[in-house]
């Protein structure tokens, strides 16, 4: 990246837009992403939310945010963003609203809303070139309802609806949808993956996105202590492991052109990431499921073999 104000962790903006006391779980990766993402976004933000864990951030009469928030419905947060964006635009255009009152409109949803029930709405908003941010906090399942599989649950993971059994020893047998590519196929100005472990990378991406008008879409891997079966304290570590094993590539696409922003020099084996999570425990105990682990490793290797260095 060319010119950036984010060089080291010392450059993380000090202003907090999110205060403590939310009802979200201890060690929630999504909460950390929202907090850091907001720092890079700056103020004058309205978050538009679809049903998911983060919906519980603001429950009457409390909100942790110093910014505005609008809970819409599970399938249609991007449409909600459309209404707010358009209303602000027309009111400003007609001189009814001081341009100083303008806001950045940011959709925040989980992976279920992003990849399943709300995909149509997101596609519509991106297609229309809506000037908005979309932050998908991806904990790879429907966390708020008790961790059932979504179409962003990875293959081999155990969830409340893909429990490993003797008939289904791998747990979830369906592949994770490639939401980055689904979004990118619309050729929006900016799409990126981010991780709470790689903070400078995240801040730079938000900084870059701020320079574009139109859809700016972020897919954040968000470790979920309760759903993944990890200690809350391991949350950031797991996000880091996902990057270091190559399971979670950090990349961006500007008008469809993909660049990897972090290429792990020597990728750790995926096993290092899988074996520390309860949702993958069935791949290791009582007997190691070499085939599934090898398949996951193969997919990661194939992905990176196509990435230009």
């Amino acid at each position: 990246m060319s010119i950036t104000k984010y060089r080291t962790l010392k450059d993380v903006p000090k202003e907090e837009f999110l205060v403590a006391g939310t009802p979200l779980c201890a060690g929630c990766g999504a909460l950390l992403v929202i907090r850091l993402f907001h720092k890079a976004l700056g103020g004058n933000v309205v978050w538009v939310n679809a049903a998911g864990c983060v919906t519980l951030m603001a429950t009457f009469p409390y909100t942790p945010l110093r910014s505005s928030w609008f809970y819409t419905a599970m399938p249609s947060a991007p449409a909600g963003a459309q209404g707010i964006r358009d209303a602000l635009d027309i009111l400003i255009k007609k001189g009814k609203l001081d341009p100083a009152e303008n806001l950045k409109v940011v959709v925040i949803t989980g992976d279920g809303a992003a990849s399943d029930i709300g995909l149509q709405s997101a596609s519509g908003a991106i297609h229309r070139g809506l000037d908005f941010f979309y932050l998908c906090v991806d904990n790879e399942a429907y966390g708020n309802t008790g961790f059932q599989a979504s179409s962003l649950s990875p293959i081999g993971s155990g969830t409340a609806t893909t429990k490993p059994t003797h008939l289904y020893p791998a747990g979830n047998v369906l592949p994770k949808k490639d939401l980055f590519e689904i979004w990118r196929s619309h050729r929006p100005p900016y799409v990126a993956t981010i991780s709470p472990s790689h903070v400078v990378d995240m801040l730079r991406k938000v900084e870059k996105a701020l320079s574009f008008k139109g859809p700016k879409l972020f897919l954040a891997l968000c470790p979920c202590p309760t759903g993944w079966g990890i200690e809350p304290s391991e949350s950031v570590q797991l996000a880091r492991l996902a990057v270091e094993t190559g399971i979670w590539p950090l990349k961006e696409a500007v008008y469809g052109e993909v660049t990897h922003t972090h290429i792990p020099s020597k990728r750790r084996p995926v096993e290092d990431y899988l074996k520390v999570q309860r949702r993958f425990a069935h791949l290791f105990k009582p007997i190691k499921n070499e085939a599934v682990i090898a398949e996951i490793q193969k997919q990661v290797d194939e992905y990176w073999s196509k990435v230009e260095r």
Partner: peptide, 27 residues
């Protein structure tokens, strides 16, 4: 002097209508 936007469904249409009205536009 209005914004006309063709949505991708009535569900989205109503969502956008509602948030726009809450933002202060006559919808």
């Amino acid at each position: 002097e209005a914004i006309f936007v063709q949505m991708e469904s009535e569900h989205s249409l109503l969502t956008a209508a509602g948030t726009a009205a809450a933002t202060g536009a006559r919808v």
